[in-house]
Amino acid sequence: MASIAEQVTGERMARMVLSMIAEPDDQATGHVLAQVGGVETLALMENNEPVPEMARAEAMVWREHLAPHLDQGLAARAVEAEGRGIGTLIPADREWPTGLNDLGVRAPYVLWTRGATSLLTSPLRERVTVTGARAATDYGMEVASDLAGNLADDERVIVAGGAFGIEGAAHRGALARGGHTVAVLAGGVDRAYPSAHRELLERIGDVGLLVSELPPGAAPSRQRFVARGRLLAALSGVTVIPEAGLRSGAMRTAAHAHALRRGVGAVPGPVTSVTSEGPHDLIKRGIASMVTTTSDVTVLLDSGPAARRNLGRPEPGAEFTYRRPSPPQEPGRAL
């Protein structure tokens, strides 16, 4: 029986199949892929040949980790997905968002798409990621919607994750102004999540873009939500956090953006609100600039940290971490 590598036809199909085998942000797989390409990566999964720049013991662990996911029907699944009108992007494509290359070995193997991939061809400074609390307050929702709408009026593309709260408000704010928006999903582009946002996601797929590094049919998981944060950060020139808890996924996205030398903005809010703790902490620690108007975001886009501080590009595959603040020794007082 032919191996999986022998069944694929070219680099695109190899990367499609790879996304069905390895989880997103698998740095070992990303390392091999960067060294030898998709077809040879699949071949190395199935044989015992030496893996470039990987010790024999490490290669054995890598193969054992992926072995349960190897299936002879994967190539057929890739062909079937293409027949359903779901698109794909790989680094060789003109529409591939080059900002993702800054992730190094943590870059996605492939992007599955539904909609206008041309929205990814613009410069980084023309895209803004807006993310934050799912259990957002009315204040946070209003800020996110107004900010996204105003940026859309300036012909900026709004990037978010399609979730409840801040992200849904940002998508709707952009759409209400006739603007462009991209939803980065933690599951397949054919799988609406959350299901209550089906109508919103369908509309984005029709007039904007749905994108995922997961293959069609894939279900979201906690690990996949965590991995998605690096894409939200890398796709835009600035990430804005209107509201977020200290331990939320939005804070990890802000940390990714900061490590990638992207701009980070945070909106101040009531000191009595737990959803304002995240933005306030980012501002206090110098990770984020305070955002109170749309022009604050525009300044970050047009003269962000990389331009102002003459910072170089991040090291490929740099680790992204968010340091949680230590709990106060004494109860704090509201102002």
Rank of each mutant, 00 (worst) to 15 (best):
D138E: 15
D146A: 13
E167H: 01
E49P: 00
M1D: 13
A266P: 04
P305R: 13
H65Q: 13
P194E: 10
R125M: 12
L74K: 06
G173I: 05
P316E: 07
L44E: 10
A218S: 14
A43S: 15
E11Q: 13
Y109K: 15
T129R: 02
I4Q: 02
L311C: 00
R134W: 02
Y139E: 00
G269P: 02
H69G: 06
A288G: 07
A334I: 14
V51S: 01
V264C: 01
A22I: 04
V274C: 03
W96P: 12
P314L: 07
H256R: 02
L260C: 10
A55I: 00
V182H: 07
S145H: 05
R262H: 12
G104Q: 08
E11Y: 07
A116W: 13
R134D: 00
D138P: 00
L119I: 00
L201I: 04
L246M: 11
E315C: 03
G149I: 01
L232Q: 12
T98V: 14
V128E: 05
E40L: 11
V189C: 02
A28Q: 14
L44N: 05
L103D: 03
T275N: 14
V299W: 11
E23Q: 13
L70N: 06
L42I: 10
V51H: 01
E6I: 04
V189R: 00
V17W: 02
H280N: 08
W112H: 06
G317L: 07
R247T: 12
L42Y: 05
P305H: 06
R309Y: 15
A107E: 14
V271N: 10
L70V: 05
A22T: 02
Q27K: 13
E243V: 06
P316K: 12
A244T: 06
D93A: 08
A75E: 07
A219S: 13
G132F: 04
M1F: 09
V79K: 13
G249L: 10
G30I: 12
G304F: 03
L151T: 03
G312V: 06
G10V: 08
R172N: 13
L301I: 09
G87Q: 08
P305N: 06
D154F: 05
R323N: 11
A186V: 08
P325L: 10
G73N: 12
L147V: 04
Q35D: 14
A81C: 13
V226H: 07
T117M: 00
Y322C: 08
A57P: 00
A255M: 03
R203L: 11
A59E: 10
A148K: 02
L66N: 07
L103M: 08
A14F: 06
N310S: 15
G317A: 04
V79T: 14
A233P: 02
N150W: 06
P316V: 03
M251N: 00
H180K: 15
N310C: 12
A254R: 04
E80N: 11
T88I: 15
M60R: 15
A169P: 03
E319F: 08
T321Y: 09
P97N: 04
T117D: 09
P91M: 11
H171V: 05
L260K: 04
S212G: 05
A318C: 14
A259K: 12
N48V: 09
A234R: 04
R106G: 15
M251D: 01
E82Q: 15
L33D: 04
T29P: 01
L89F: 07
Y193A: 08
T9E: 14
P279L: 05
A250F: 10
G161W: 01
V211Y: 09
T292N: 08
V267Y: 03
E23Y: 06
L185K: 01
